[in-house]
Nucleic acid binder design. Structure first.
Lengths: 164, 164
DNA sequence: CGCATAACGTTATAACATTACATAAATATG
DNA sequence: CATATTTATGTAATGTTATAACGTTATGCG
């Protein structure tokens, strides 16, 4: 089981998270002979500015604010598509938002746990979930190609606060 | 385990499916003292015209074609919201589409299996999936409030055809 | 009946995403 | 190294999904 839940919801040195993620991305892109262009790199860095999923238009706005010229939707969507294809980011369908993947390079099915209070998301690659989905599919003779598992609720931190 | 996968992907007397669903809906609404108005009933019937999830704008179009006057988005979205609240329908976030719930009245977490070839969706309420999600959440001290499990792949029928 | 609430009608707009086509940058090839 | 090819980006327009705001009608209740 791979999970970043121990870190995602807590105070932590996030700069290290971010830098490590960028380093992994650079190395994987080199390895796969694809180009992590400045735009793509900037979008990924924005996704890693926190553990909160980011909408495409938030990215557009932030990039526009940062640079001189306004960045147009296709520019960002193309970068996002690239990151999704390379497994460097994931799309959260329930939020229309995107997160950086903490385990790129490990082809994996995964589940995302999004805190309704603070908005932070952790990713967990827990075989029992995939196995259970596989078992349910097997009963129906269904051949699984992909899955989206998105869980909402309260993270440990916010749960503590809500218990007051 | 509750599932309609045995019926959803096959040829079957769908009129019975549809009528049974409408009957359940009427009875549940009566029971809960809420009103299944004509608009709401029509939207639910459209959702039950097949096992293919329907987009809101497809519903709008069909309702507009059926009646004299063009039906506006809020009308349909309000009906959908009602059906979702009452557990008579579900939203599929990955498709931006809606399906009638085959097991209303049984409060349940569920997974949906959508065939990429024919578009049909089956719903399955399989405890092992929920338990696995619960276990992963427990490890992270995460309190689950809701889940969206959407699986894509090939249904038994389409799988057979694809094997040629 | 008269009032309160719930449902619906209508217009406009917000939020998310893509198409189509032009330009530029990187890479491959002779 | 010139140039052809591919890959990436710029830009305008539009498509798709969903909601806000506000007025009107229908329903149920004292």
């Amino acid at each position: 089981m791979l999970s970043n839940s121990r870190v995602a919801y807590r105070e932590h040195n996030h700069l290290r998270c971010q830098n490590a993620a960028m380093q992994r991305a650079r190395s994987l892109c080199e390895q796969h002979k694809v180009r992590l262009t400045p735009i793509r790199e900037n979008v990924l860095r924005l996704l890693w500015q926190s553990h909160r999923p980011l909408g495409a238009y938030e990215i557009i706005e932030q990039l526009s604010d940062a640079g001189e010229k306004s960045v147009k939707p296709p520019t960002v969507y193309r970068a996002i598509d690239f990151l999704l294809e390379q497994g460097l980011a994931h799309r959260l369908a329930t939020l229309n938002a995107y997160i950086g993947c903490p385990f790129p390079g490990n082809p994996h099915r995964f589940a995302v746990f999004v805190c309704q209070a603070c908005g932070s998301a952790a990713e967990s690659s827990f075989e029992a979930i995939d196995n259970a989905i596989g078992a349910a599919a097997a009963r129906a003779d269904f051949e699984v190609h992909g899955q989206a598992v998105e869980v909402t609720g309260l993270c440990p931190q916010c749960r503590g606060k809500a218990d007051d």
